[in-house]
Design a protein around this nucleic acid. Sequence first.
RNA 1: GUCUUGUUAGCUCAGCUGGUAGAGCACGUCACUUUUAAUGAUGUGGCCGAUGGUUCGAAUCCAUCACAGGACACCA
Length: 502
Amino acid sequence: MAFENKFIQQRIEKAEVLREAGFNPYSNNSQRNTTVEKYLNVNSDIQDKEDKRDENRHYIVSGRIKLLRIMGKASFVKIEDESGMLQIYIARDNLPEDFYNTIFKKNIEVGDIIEVSGYPFVTGKGELSLHANELKLLTKAIAPLPEKFHGVTDKEIRYRKRYLDLIMNAEVRKTFQTRSKVISLTRRFFEDKGFLEVETPMMHPIAGGANAKPFVTHHNALGIDRFLRIAPELYLKRLIVGGFEAVFEINRNFRNEGMDATHNPEFTSIEFYWAYKTYKDLIEITKEYFQYLFEHLNLPTILPYGDMEVNFENFTEVPLIESLTTIGGVPAEMCNDKESIVAFLKSKNITVKPGMNLGQLQGELFDEFVEEKLIDPTFITEYPVEISPLARRSDENPAITERFELFIAGREIANAFSELNDPIDQYERFKGQGEAKEAGDDEAHEMDEDFIDALSYGMAPTAGQGIGIDRLVMLLTNEHSIRDVLLFPAMKPIHNDTQEQE
RNA sequence: GUCUUGUUAGCUCAGCUGGUAGAGCACGUCACUUUUAAUGAUGUGGCCGAUGGUUCGAAUCCAUCACAGGACACCA
């Protein structure tokens, strides 16, 4: 089925004609000596010259043909490389005899990758171009490109054939360049602060560090199942036990859950752990981190996101319980009583699972009435202990933890806390999670005895934080689907040939 | 997982209350030596997502399935 399409057939024939004429349709002896961007910069002075040209300069540029305008004995070709688009002027009489008519006009077309040498000049309409005196095909594209004006807009094609999306949509390339910069800047920021970048296992015997369903895989030699990690947290903390005082890991996590605009089965996060610090220090470093990103990405501090405007100079801190009333509009007297909350939620037509404890209900209120209203960056602090199984209790109030989540544009961006380092308390909380699991909560934490063992040797007081990189990039690039910031988002197979094994 | 909207030429899209499938771009042929989505002429191109059903007749109506988008639920 591969090459049956008639357009592809036609182009294969052209490649054959070229081969027979002595032109390799997949030549690899590129002589390129400049990029489009450099060419346009270096030769911008041509605009000011009297005859608008300099035949003494000589450049070789390469790129994919995006537009082709043949006008009899002369043609204009727009080629594109990673750095930009350049117009090439090709006249019959400047090329070898017959090359223009029999090779160029008949067998080279939009989508092909060519190399052109010539000199800079400015056209009558004022566009700095390249006057070709040699043209060589580097790569024949046998598949035709999508339509030149509308390009490819079908999201399914764009995600499944990202290469085509990248060829056709320059702004998509830009989004991924920004993503790359964000990751690189993040790495540099933490390195400069003295953090050590580490790699911890992707395959875990116990999927811990978060509440989520894992993917399961199998180790043949050992004959045991492994879980793709849902979070690196418990391993990073083992490193703090071991004596590293500041570590971070930027890497993938895998969660076997639903997919939508903000969830992909594999996603990237940074987690960092900092000994002898508390969540208060994390608030400060987070603000600094954002400032650093904005500065190096040259972003305005008031950033549009959809129809919102996010002011990145306006970071605030609000305790969770307080936010329920001041931001969510929940009557204050309701917030600390289970029955009242259940009644309140019911009155708003929100169904609550039976048996939820006070902390879970408060979390429910927050999700329902507060989260989407947090546009400017807001640190929500003082989370109930019941929904924070790995966070340290507040010394003043053991019902709450030294934790915050950072919300921006109505979405959670970071989760952070002073780490629980009391092995007995951690053990009890794992046990509590185990009971929740028995009761049907299949995302509750597993007991990790090795981790308890590690804590038993003593982990210095530590603060740790996770930031979702994908969502951060979405925020910074004004994209509204996680698929638009992932080069190859997860998609179902088109053909039903991956039959599930029962 | 639920609801909802899509799926027609390589791409972007029309196609009314059922009557043998349309445009633009691309492609072929011709003309054209400074164009800008070049232009003019002309031609090729389709199992109308898949399978069933209703009907004399289905791209169109109905059902099921597949894939996608959006919303909701859960989570990051």
